[in-house]
Each structure stands twice: as C-alpha cells, then as structure tokens.
Write a protein that binds this DNA or RNA. Sequence first.
DNA 1: CGGTGTCATGACATCGGTGTCATAACGGAT
DNA 2: ATCCGTTATGACACCGATGTCATGACACCG
Lengths: 344, 344
Amino acid sequence: MATIYDVAKQAGVSPKTVSRVINGDAPVGTKTRDAVEAAIRELDYRPSRAARTMRSSRSGLIGLITGAISRGDGSAGPSGLPDLFIVQAIQRVVAEAGLTLMIADTGGEADRASELVATFAQHRVEGLVYVADHHQRIDDLDPRGAPLVLANCFDAAGTPAVLPDDRAGQRALVERVIAAGHRRIGYLTLPAGMVATELRSQGYREALEAAGIAFDPELEIEGFADRGEGPKPFLTSALDQLLALEDRPSVICCGNDELALRLYGELRERGIRVPQEISVAGYDDYRVISETLYPPLTTADLNYRGIGEAAARRLLSLIAGAPAPTEVELVGGPVCWRQSVTEH
Amino acid sequence: MATIYDVAKQAGVSPKTVSRVINGDAPVGTKTRDAVEAAIRELDYRPSRAARTMRSSRSGLIGLITGAISRGDGSAGPSGLPDLFIVQAIQRVVAEAGLTLMIADTGGEADRASELVATFAQHRVEGLVYVADHHQRIDDLDPRGAPLVLANCFDAAGTPAVLPDDRAGQRALVERVIAAGHRRIGYLTLPAGMVATELRSQGYREALEAAGIAFDPELEIEGFADRGEGPKPFLTSALDQLLALEDRPSVICCGNDELALRLYGELRERGIRVPQEISVAGYDDYRVISETLYPPLTTADLNYRGIGEAAARRLLSLIAGAPAPTEVELVGGPVCWRQSVTEH
DNA sequence: CGGTGTCATGACATCGGTGTCATAACGGAT
DNA sequence: ATCCGTTATGACACCGATGTCATGACACCG
C-alpha cells in the first residue's frame, strides 16, 4: 500500500504538503494541488487510519457488542433475529457520521463481554453500544472510559439506555381494538417474568381502564411456555380456557407475532375463522409473519430500527461531549392495522 | 489511555521490556515480569492496535460488506432476513481467529460498495467478505489488493465464492418426499429468473428422473410474484391450477418457507387440511416459520450459518497465503423432516 | 584466570501520518 | 529601496508500538 511519502515523491513535494491537500488545512498552490491529486490517483493512495489514530487519538471506530446473553441454550424469549434490525440501524447512523462500526458477539457467554470491551479498547473505539436480543436487564459492564449506550436493555448503574416502549405500544394497540368496537379482549402473554411481558400487560390494562372496561383476570393467560416443554400444548390449553368462557372474547391479543402465527393454526384447526368468528392481534410487526399471514396481522410495530437509531444518535452525542441522560429513552412504534381484527 | 511508556515508568523498566512481557518474545526476569504485570494491571493498560498496525502492517481487521443490512424500506428480497445469519457466522469464525470484524453496508446502492472498500482500505483490513441477501450474481468488485471472498453470490471474474447448493438441496428434499410414497409432486417456484429458482427447479427434476417419474410441466408453476402486484392472487390462481388437474398432486413443494406459510393459509381457507388431504414442503428452514407453523413444516435447511462459516474459513486461508480456488464452494444442509408431509 | 555463550535489558530507529515552527517568495505600502 | 504581511512550502518532532543491535552480568569450559 502506498504511503504519503510515495505520493510526495511522485508529486515532487513534501509529505506535509500532501497532507495539506488531503485535509485542506492550509492553502496549497493550484499547480501543486493538481500534481498531488494526480499522484494520489495514480498510486491509488489511501491514508492509513492507524497512523492518523496515533497522531490524533481519534480512531473513527465504534464498537458494538451483541449479546445473546440468555440465548445460547435456546431457552430465550422471543425468536432471536429481530435484534439484528437494531444493529442495522446503528450501522447506518454510524456510517452517516463518518465512523466505522466494529462488531463482536458474546456467543451466549455473558462474561465474555468484558473481554470484547478489552479488544475494542485496543482499537481505541470512541464509543460502545451493547445490543440485547430482547428487552431485559443486564449486568453492569465496565466500558473502560469509552461512552456506552445500551440498546434494548438496561442495567442497575443507570447507563444511558434506549428501550422499546412496550407499555405504550400495547396500550395503543388495545385502545385501537376497543375503538374498533371490541369489549371482551383476551390476552395471551409471553412467558411471565420477562420485562416485556409485564410492561405489555400493564399497557393492556391501562387501555381497558381508560375505556372504562373492567379487567377480567380470566382473559389474561400465559400463552407461551419455554421451548423446552413445547409451546403447542400450552397454547392449546390456554385457548381452551378462553373459548370456554361464558362471555367469550371477540378478539385475542398475543404477546408477539410468532404466538399469533401459532394461534392462527390453532384456530383454523378448530374451524374458527379469523377474523369473521374471532379477531387476532400480535405484537412486534415481524413482517415475515405479519404481512405473510392470511389475513394480514394487525399488530404493534416494536420499531427495532427506531431503537437502533436512537441508541446510535445518543452515543454520537455522548461522544460529542453531551452530558449523560438520567432517564432511559423509550421508543415506540405505530399500531399496524391490517385485516385480522374486525372493525365494529 | 495509558501507553507503554507509562507502564515502563511505573515498573521502572524500559518500554521494550514491557513489550517483551506482553508478547513473550524474549526471556524476562521473574521479578521484572511481576513488576511489569502489576503496572499493567494498575494502569489498566491495553496496547494500541494503531501503533502495532503501523509497525507490523497487520491490522487484525476483516471488512464485511453487505447489502442486507439496511434495506431501509423493509421491502426485503425474496428470502428476507435470514442472510444475516451469514454475518453472524462470519463474525464468530473471525473472532475465533483473533481478528475483529468491521461491517458496512451499501444501503441498497450497489455502487457504494467501492466507497466502502476504500474505507476498509484506510483501515488496512487484511481481508474482505461480501455478503449478498440472496443467491445472485453481482458486479465485479475491486478489493484493492486485499483477499476477497463472496458469500451467497458470485461474479464473472471468478472471485472465490461460497454458495448454497440449491440444486442438491431441492433434490434431496424431493427424493425424501418420493421415498415417503409421493408420486404426483407439485412445485410452486420462486420468481423465474432468480438463480435459486433455476437451480432448485433443476434439483426437483433430477429427483423425479432418478425415481423414474416423468416430469409434468403442469405441476411446476411460478407461485411467487413480486410484492408490487401482490403475491396473494398470484398464489391463488397457481393453486387453482394445481387443484384443477385431473391427477391432483398429493404434495406441493414451495420455493421457500414464506411461500409455504401463504399456502397453509390458502389451503385452510379452502378447507383442505395439511397434511391429511395434501402435503406441503418448504425451503430454507426459516425456523420462525417452519417450527411455528402447525403442522411443523418439512423443508430443506439452506444452511446460512454453514455458508458464513465456509466463507470466513476460506478468507482466513487466503490471508494465510493459500492459493485462490478455481471453483465455487457449495454448501448444503439437511432435509428437515417434520409433519407437513405424509409418510406412505 | 581468560574466553565464550546465554540471559536480561536498554538505546535507537522506524512505521505513516500531522502539529509546530521556520523560511522563501511575492505584492503592496511607505 | 525598505519593510511588512500574506501565501506557499518544507524541516522536524512526535504519536505508541516493536525490530535490531549493543551492552552488562553471569555461568561454564578448558
């Protein structure tokens, strides 16, 4: 790879002058500039980031750690993948800011995270993002001085974090369902104990309350067991319970789109048509499911991209010297109204 | 951030001795070593990669370019998201080799790729991988001297490439379906013209031929139109054609799992039960679909992870000086036999 | 006891840029 | 003609590692 000295020699000037042409620091004579630019093109010269980094101690790098902390064994909550949307969004924002993204993965072992931070520290990254695969609390992570932002997770230390607004999202969806004329609203939740489960349930209840509908505990059932014991029979019995109710729900909201997909299967198995006989709603707007199902699924957009964008922007502003926020940032998404819930 | 000089001063030795302790180049006295290690811990010292890179011209970086990352509009290609599994697998292999992965994406504009190559060149990456979102041919890309491997795509220049073995995969699946007792096998293909479409069709015909079953052109229909004109009615009429045949197929193979998901809906809409009245098979083993559907979908594992792994290993061996292979590397996956195809 | 080899360590130069300061050339004001 | 202020350029040091070579302290051998 050509160096600045090669270019200088080729153009018959000093290396410093080449540097000036590249960076536009100081005025350079027109003829000199042309000669230098020609030499750069001829040699296909690219300035070495490493050398620049040494001199300026600005590496132009952002480190990203994705953490399938609880995923390794497969017992995790939602279906993996979507967190990659967050990574995509972060990549885009970082690139727009002229920085380059380095990524690493804990491969499921939580304690590897600090190892990865060390690697990033060697590269003198200017900032770090930690992306979790689902809304969760994580152990504190020492970023060794670099600004750190958490995406889709939070910690006890109050590190700046960007989270999905599960409560508001579920509330908006249920309110919209109520506006469509529904009163008896079943809710099949994700596994109890997960952060998203609790917040969405809260949103569900708030929507009911705001509409003056009493919360009926019989309508809210855990519908998604760990993969270990097989979710199918679990869902079957949950559905049995809902359908056996005297005052049957006219719509069933699901903890996420995957659960809604299973529910479609269950209902069709029993000859119950969606949405004519019962309406179904999901959560996440996982498009491969929500747009592909027939009828297309009404759901709430979890907005992974928005989370990634917000996290990246927050990180950039921290790097620029902004003070760390004291509160987490909540990112919401719109209700995606399709054809799986009847209107009126 | 502490430097090697800080450590040297703290330990009362020369910087070179600290370097020796870190790299184990040359023997160092026990007492000296202890002092240096203590100083390193105390100062939380991490050697600067930038400085090392300058000295050794080895950056420890691998560049990854993908068009997959920000398809901003969400209008995915045919296969959707799973190509990101390739990225994950590459990340893992690269990390195991002690290298760090930098990623960038074209944001959908193919000509941005060379810009990204330039950025990577500045970082003096030791190798490059280009990952496509679906099996396709791409324009030649000038890697400016760095070894380059293509994953899920190939070019005219014969750049080393790792591709899914669509032909063998489809053939194995159809052979297994035949072994299960089926003779009339419908095939709803992906859009004509795509590489995967042609290869899978070839595999389908090979399996028929191997079993001595004549290929019936009426059984192979394009089932997946571009999103623009809406795939639903397209699939509907394709299905109409298949069901109207005098000798109706006992099983329908689909171009991918997403199409199979739509087909489930179509069939149930018509009151045709899967697999009792007609069997269905997919392709890709896109688990969110294949494992979640009821009945679980029989499909062929496209093995994105395997592709990523193979591409990363190939790149590492190129970096180590191995000669570039003259043939593309095909990666296959097993048939995933579940309950959507009847046995006997 | 002097010579030789090994071990342990340090001085110095170097990788490829850029900040600092010096200097040469030139036009205009006095 | 002299002085001054730009403008254009180069010399040199430095960022933080490490390769090369030199040096001092021993141990071992004859």
